[in-house]
Amino acid sequence: MCNHYFARCGSVTLMFVLGAGGLLPAPAVEPVTVAKAADTASQAETTGPVSGYAFLQKETQQMQDDDFLNPGMQWVEAGKEMFNTLQGENGKTCAACHGEDGSKLDPKRIAQYPVYSETLGKPVTLQNQVNACWTKRMGYHPLPYDTEGAIKLEVFVQNLARGEKVNVQTDGPMRPYYEKGRTIYQTRVGQLDMACSVCHDSNAGKKIRGNTLSQGQVNGYPAYRLQHGAVAGLHTTFNECYRLFRASEMPLGNDDYTALEVYVTARGNGLTIETPAVRF
């Protein structure tokens, strides 16, 4: 069994990230004879957010850029097929309400997810919304979070907003969830006692073994993950990062992960949506 930390185990795709140089200059390192508690400022907050794309190797960028090479596009196509053809108990397809190929969906609205639901009194992720239509309007059994069918539908819908700017609400009723997400992001957990922030806030561009750390932006999700050979959802990636520092995982789709999704997505407000991104 693999218990390496920071090595994503069983990966045959490490070569894709090896040698990927960060675009941000690595800050000079100081010795630690004196405590320096100061450097907590997030790069994303001080210099503006940078897409994970900027930290990829050129070949990986090219793979993402070309729809014929980008394996994520097959998932988008599969999602489109489900969207247009699957009929629930009521005989309706997604397309019956939202137009053939989602022509009636508003890309600007999609770019705002997660959004606050007045009915539920809490934020819903795009996948929650897709699943709500799937079960309530069409009468299917719920798709468990981040499973293949859910991801296919989500990646198809999110792809409709490719090129739009991420635009998550952080004030009003969303504020408490944004703040809860930030707290989770900054809370040290696990045997290695790390938080998302210690890797992704001020170390982007530096290397953990062969991996170049990015700012952990999510403007390309669901993303085609080279190490999985599949499109994977965001909550699955959260669990992978937690596994890296030997923390217990959380149930996919739970309220804490929704809050974390609100926070990490809003950190990237203004970035261009790239779904399906190609990532390590």
């Binding site: 957990v189 045997q191 006692d193 596994r243």
Partner: peptide, 16 residues
């Protein structure tokens, strides 16, 4: 970012 390699495990949260 450096892990504490020998710290009291009782002080840690959500350890796998």
């Amino acid at each position: 970012l450096m892990p504490s390699f020998h710290r009291n495990p009782g002080e840690l949260k959500r350890v796998a």
